[in-house]
Nucleic acid binder design. Structure first.
Length: 320
DNA sequence: CGCTAACGCAAAGACCTCTA
DNA sequence: TAGAGGTCTTTGCGTTAGCG
């Protein structure tokens, strides 16, 4: 289960925030104030360990890796998520940051978002990769990204009913130029030479046609049922009613889009990629929409430093 | 009928070219 | 000439068609 509070102090030191709100559209621009230092990294690591803990236990169990951190047998080679390639880490990074921002900042509607657990254990390909790597250290390969909804948080009312959830789509790019943005949001260009157009297979399309009740809620239900049936009894019961085929309980959906990565070379401070003064015209779903843009320098280093540091302390302490 | 080569698709970085 | 835009390349999976 995910238990660490969002590292608000470290976020505040690291990032400056420009929030805005129009109707049911919220926009939050986060920009680097300073490069990361050990204080910020340490705080991030604590949160990331909490976010990945459930999946780590799952995958290590699957691969029969000893849970003792001082195990330096072959089993230690493929630890989750340290052993994953950079591209995969970027995907995970976006999801964890989605969760962290959801918990740390005011989003559209000012709801109290709860993240009982991150759904990384459903990242089947990562599980397979860790399993294989532990039996054959040469089997390094790419890991497929996660399909579908990236991350889920819920709102729980006084009676313990789930009445709203937020589903996030996170994208990482090294340099957010206009053409990169268009390709991500509207899809890659295709068509005959000279008259190529965006093919509408981008994030807007995905968000517009997203399910009212996504698979992530089912996955969340499954994990809670398995790991914390008592603590989350009312939430589990509520999710059951929401997921029912016949006469399901209603639930509201908030869409979250996180664009994270490096700035374009000519970017001016405090400028956003997506307009914030009005709901973007490409958004057709009509639900609550929250967009977060996170613009940082040296993103690759930050990601590698965080992921390189996960559970490193535990291992170091154990070997003393 | 099952295997395999070939093609298609996707993500993301590298690389090339055009322009203010 | 730096930077943006666009295309190419790389890596790997999925699907399909052809062949023994």
């Amino acid at each position: 289960m995910h238990t660490a509070p969002p590292p608000k102090k470290a976020l505040n030191k690291w990032l400056i925030n420009y929030p805005s709100e129009v109707g049911n559209y919220g926009h939050l621009l986060l920009e680097q104030k300073q490069s990361v230092d050990t204080e910020i990294i340490d705080a991030m690591i604590q949160y990331f360990e909490s976010a990945h803990l459930d999946a780590r236990e799952c995958f290590h169990k699957l691969a029969r890796i000893s849970l003792h951190p001082d195990n330096d047998e072959i089993g230690c080679i493929g630890q989750y998520p340290v052993a994953l390639p950079l591209k995969t880490r970027k995907g995970l990074f976006g999801e964890v940051m989605s969760g962290m921002f959801t918990e740390a900042y005011k989003f559209i509607g000012e709801h109290e978002w709860v993240i009982p657990v991150f759904l990384f254990r459903n990242h089947e390909d990562a599980g397979q990769y860790i399993y294989t790597l532990n039996r054959d250290p040469d089997r390094k390969r790419e890991v497929l990204g996660r399909k579908g909804d990236d991350f889920i948080a819920i709102v729980v009312d006084q009676e313990g009913n789930v009445n709203r959830f937020i589903a996030g789509e996170a994208k990482w790019r090294g340099s957010w130029t206009k053409s990169v943005l268009d390709t991500v949001m509207l899809g890659p260009k295709s068509g005959p030479e000279g008259e190529k157009v965006h093919n509408n297979k981008g994030v807007w399309h995905e968000v517009n046609r997203a399910l009212a009740v996504p698979l992530g809620l089912e996955q969340l239900h499954t994990i809670l049922h398995e790991c914390e049936p008592d603590k989350y009894a009312s939430v589990i019961a509520s999710l059951d009613r929401i997921l029912a085929h016949r006469n399901p309980d209603p639930v509201e959906r908030t869409d979250l889009i996180l664009l994270a990565g490096g700035p374009a070379k000519k970017r001016k401070k405090a400028t956003s990629l997506i307009p914030w003064k009005d709901v973007p015209f490409e958004y057709e779903a009509g639900r609550d929409l929250q967009i977060v843009e996170m613009i940082i320098e040296d993103g690759d280093d930050v990601i590698n430093t965080i992921y390189g540091g996960l559970w490193a302390k535990v291992a170091a302490d154990a070997s003393i």
